[in-house]
Design a protein around this nucleic acid. Structure first.
Lengths: 232, 232
DNA sequence: ATAGTTATTTGCGCCAGCGCAAAGACAGAT
DNA sequence: ATCTGTCTTTGCGCTGGCGCAAATAACTAT
């Protein structure tokens, strides 16, 4: 896998970096390949690298002391992950990054990134802006988890996923998502069983079509209606 | 209320600002006084100011479209709030800030802050570091809400509040917190009724003592035990 | 094909927590 | 001292969602 500096421009935080800086980033990083279900790093590992996904898909997980886990975010190509730990010196990753399918990521040395951020205020500002969007998204999801019922949370999660990763497959065929029931449960703070029952019901209603590790959204508008939950 | 530049050094993000910068900050800001239950800003307002609380206590709320609300954070003196909106140009506040008691805050013009951040990389870096702590806290609370039972979440919330705002009142008398049952419910994603029942039970057990808008922690260690929930 | 592995579905019983309603407690104002 | 508004408590019934268990379906490797 060869990565050029023009590829790196797809990373929001590097959009305003100079070509020299991009070259330097490439020089101070390595590509790591991870097979399906493999890990880029674990919660608690010392945060020596910041990653940019270049191929595949991954998820960011947080585990409770008892071992239950929630999914914080799905990572798509050219998105950064592990940046939180990388900003502060001697930090550890607050979450685990696991590949959903065979994936590759550029691993940039944390120390190098810190130096870069110090020298280039535009990169620093863009990274900060990215962080504000994370905070807002987490706040919104927190509110959702606290105030909304499972139906609405799941509808919202599917809508969000459709917007991020949805491939409009052959026309009329709907938006296809590749996630297991367990994955969706971890994203919405519920259980595998409840998701299975809910998706079955939605399939009966004709809103979606399901398969093994696959959900195809046929009627996005109906999901939006459920997410908004006008009646109580 | 007169604020000196040395007061401002208590603000984490301004610790490494120069005296000149601090003077400039004061020159570009005004003090706003808000009575109990009053608002500094509402979710959706255009984010023209970033605030630093100088006196009193406030909470940051996020409301659902149906009007239910959750508390995202309790704000104590010399903490910043409304910073998220202030970083990006033409943003709106993602949450509402309401005073828990008569409070004053320094309102700093967003545009001025943006300029300051651009000029002083240390401030920018410290602000970014502060944001990483918010993200981590929100992620941790999200996980907690998704995986833990009410008892544990409430115990955790009280422990957190005790650490932040707890006054060790007269020795042996425990740590006193001033929050209504409704406040605690909004912090933990549950209801007024459940909090009331739970606190009554804990009072019977002797862990806490309660009153109108008051919770006194007598046995912090027992709360920690509940929060950790070793048995299922 | 066949066997083994992993993902999904569904019946069933259960209970944590919700939320109404009404009573009680507390604090401030007149 | 009494009134008024707000906060808190508690009985009661209910239900959304959990989670076990067992069957079934779908994919993988031999």
């Amino acid at each position: 896998m060869n990565i050029s500096s023009s590829d790196l421009k797809q990373v929001i935080v590097f959009q305003r970096a100079t070509d020299e800086e991009l070259q330097l980033i490439l020089k101070n990083s390595i590509v790591r390949m991870v097979e399906e279900n493999g890990f880029f790093f674990f919660q608690g590992d010392s945060a020596n690298y910041l990653y940019v996904l270049v191929r595949g898909r991954a998820k960011l997980l947080q585990a409770s002391p008892q071992g239950q886990q929630v999914s914080l975010r799905i990572i798509h190509p050219w998105q950064m992950f592990g940046a939180l730990g990388a900003v502060r010196q001697e930090a550890t990753y607050p979450a685990t990054a696991q590949a959903l399918e065979e994936s590759s990521a550029l691993a940039i040395e944390s120390g190098f990134l810190r130096a870069l951020v110090e020298k280039n205020p535009r990169i620093s500002f863009d990274l900060m802006t990215l962080m504000t969007t994370y905070i807002q998204e987490m706040q919104a999801r927190y509110r959702e988890l606290a105030t909304e019922r499972v139906e609405q949370r799941v509808a919202n999660a599917l809508i969000r996923l459709a917007g991020q990763s949805g491939l409009k497959s052959s026309k009329e065929a709907g938006i296809e998502l590749s996630f297991s029931r367990q994955d969706v449960a971890e994203m919405t703070g519920t259980t595998l069983y409840t998701i299975s029952r809910l998706l079955s019901e939605w399939e009966r209603q004709g809103y979606i079509e399901t398969g093994r590790e696959r959900i195809t959204i046929l009627k996005p508008h109906d999901l939006v209606r459920i997410a908004e939950n006008l009646e109580k």
